[in-house]
Nucleic acid binder design. Structure first.
Lengths: 228, 228
DNA sequence: ACGAACCCTGAAGTAGAGGTTGACGGTTTA
DNA sequence: TAAACCGTCAACCTCTACTTCAGGGTTCGT
């Protein structure tokens, strides 16, 4: 949007200005340090024709994160780099798993791609493998909101070299698990007594949390075994 | 106290024996390294008249803790020292899902039942279905520490009416998922280059977090579908 | 078109962490 | 009493995370 206006609002800073701006919070920052961090692959500011570094607000935020991890968590740079390149579970901690009884928002493919930063091609592929769960078809096709997170997570996994078709493993696994829990509460849940229905929903929630925990424990145990 | 009894049961190790005992879990340990750690104030073993260092079991544990914090959390020594000297803040630290390259404590069936509050019968059943992963057999059978959590979680699920045999679903699912991730990092992980191995371990950690997130998202989506 | 302020790269240097090595000599224990 | 083990101390080494410097280019206001 606003393509006629020569993108006035993206202000860029040169390296000296960056130092002045962050010098308050991080007194030990310096031009050479920033250049070093770039050499090490932790930053990638754009450049002018002349070769000057230009830092966007995003670059600034990333740099701040780096400095904080250094100062507060004492992490070495290689580890910080890993952490930033795959903003896995650290930041978006425990996301509310969206309450069970509630109806979820439905979004379009376009929206899904925007929110997740995933290309329509990859989204298509993920859908083919059952990782996205749209309803309807054609132009009426709509995805549950959480599918944006699913897509973003899948995208990160593919970046590590996991092929989308292999992600089916996850879909079938969770499907089986969900079906298992469903068996337990099905009678009450499908019955006509609203009281019992509500109780079944609460039970399902609990069961789901336990199941999630169990999965997580087993999964990490398996990995520890593999990693020796 | 107990000064009349010639404290027979306090076995002490000399530095070379310490190295041999921990060398399994920490291949890069050495006599000089242990001496260095003492110089830095992280250890304080007692001495013989002749000046030889004598390490108690407590010293051993402390040393293990130090080495784990180094290897798994990448903490510098002075921070490790603080952490050990002031065990206050240690608990509220971030709870990583049990670091990967680490060897886990091994506990007996008895201990497992105590910690999890699970009956030996149920434990037996869980083991039959592959949910517990002991090593060794007979009286030498030992379980990883995390199996106590596994058992406790399983127990809760059975209380909701899930039969132990159905819990196999979870085991096979996580096994498949773990194997999938293993494929990705296997070459580097099994290689002889320690640098690449370390990187592979970090990658595996990230992959695991992403995979966990994906599972969780899909699982809750499935449940929402079932619950309408 | 010019100067002042700013920035670039590449090579070399530095400080500190985290050890290792070696010389020289004492200790334990069978 | 000899083989195996351990002690200190000083020097040395590798790696990380930068800093410094030389030589030169860029931006920008006027």
């Amino acid at each position: 949007m606003t393509s006629t206006v020569p993108q006035q609002r993206e202000r860029f800073l040169r390296i000296g200005e960056v130092v002045r701006r962050l010098g308050e919070e991080f007194p030990d920052i310096s031009i050479s340090k920033i250049r070093y961090l770039e050499d090490e692959g932790l930053l990638a500011p754009r450049r002018t024709q002349g070769g000057y570094r230009l830092f966007s607000e995003d670059d600034l935020e990333r740099l701040q994160k780096i400095l904080r991890l250094q100062r507060d968590e004492f992490l070495p740079l290689r580890v910080i780099k890993d952490e930033l390149d795959a903003p896995g579970a650290k930041e978006r901690k425990r996301k509310r798993p969206t309450p069970l009884g509630a109806e979820e928002e439905a979004i379009t493919l376009q929206e899904l791609c925007d929110r997740s930063g995933v290309s329509p091609d990859l989204a298509k592929e993920l859908e083919d493998f059952g990782l996205l769960a749209p309803r309807g078809s054609g132009s009426a096709k709509r995805y549950p909101e959480s599918d944006a997170d699913v897509a973003a997570t899948c995208a990160q996994l593919t970046r590590f070299g996991v092929a989308p078709r292999n992600l089916r493993t996850f879909r079938t696994a969770t499907g089986r698990e969900a079906a298992l829990l469903d068996q337990v509460v099905a009678p009450a849940l499908r019955g006509r007594n609203p009281e019992r229905r509500a109780q079944a929903l609460r039970d399902l929630h609990q069961l789901a949390e336990l199941a999630g925990e169990l999965s997580s424990l087993l999964f990490w145990r398996d990995l520890r075994d593999l990693a020796q």
